[in-house]
Simulated scan of single mutants.
Amino acid sequence: MLDLHEMLQTGIHFGHKTSRWCPKMRPYIWGSKNKIHLIDIAKTAALLEKIGNITKEVTSKGGVFLFVGTKKAAQPIIQRVATNVKMPFVINRWVGGTLSNFDQVKKAITRLLHLRDVVTKSAGYYKKKEIVMLQKEIERLEKNVGGIIDLSFPPAALIVVDVKKERAAVKEASALGIPVIAMVDTNTDPEGVSHIIPSNDDSPKAIEFVLNYIEGRIKEGQKLHAENKALEAKQPTVAKETFKEDVRGDRFAPRREAPARRFHSPRPPHKKSEE
Rank of each mutant, 00 (worst) to 15 (best):
L2I: 13
L2N: 08
L2R: 07
M7A: 11
L8V: 01
L8K: 13
I12H: 08
R20C: 06
C22A: 12
R26A: 15
P27M: 01
W30M: 12
G31V: 00
I36M: 14
L38F: 08
D40R: 03
I41D: 06
K43G: 02
A46C: 08
L47E: 12
K50V: 02
K50T: 15
G52S: 03
G52L: 07
N53M: 09
G62H: 10
L66D: 04
L66S: 02
F67Q: 09
V68Y: 04
G69H: 02
V81G: 08
V81A: 06
V81F: 05
V85Q: 07
M87R: 04
F89I: 00
R93G: 04
T98S: 11
L99R: 08
V105G: 01
A108Y: 05
I109G: 02
I109K: 05
T110D: 14
L113D: 01
D117K: 13
K121H: 09
S122Q: 15
Y125I: 14
K129G: 01
I138C: 06
I138M: 10
L141E: 04
L141G: 04
E142H: 06
V145P: 11
P155T: 03
V163Q: 05
R167P: 04
R167F: 08
K171I: 11
S174D: 12
S174W: 05
L176K: 09
M183Y: 03
V184M: 00
D189L: 04
D189T: 10
S194D: 05
S194A: 06
S194H: 00
H195P: 06
I196F: 09
I197Y: 02
I197E: 03
P198F: 06
A206G: 05
E208Q: 12
E215K: 15
G216P: 00
E220K: 06
Q222I: 10
L224Y: 06
H225E: 10
E232L: 15
K234L: 14
A239Q: 14
K240S: 09
F243H: 15
E245N: 12
D250R: 08
R251Q: 13
F252W: 07
H264E: 13
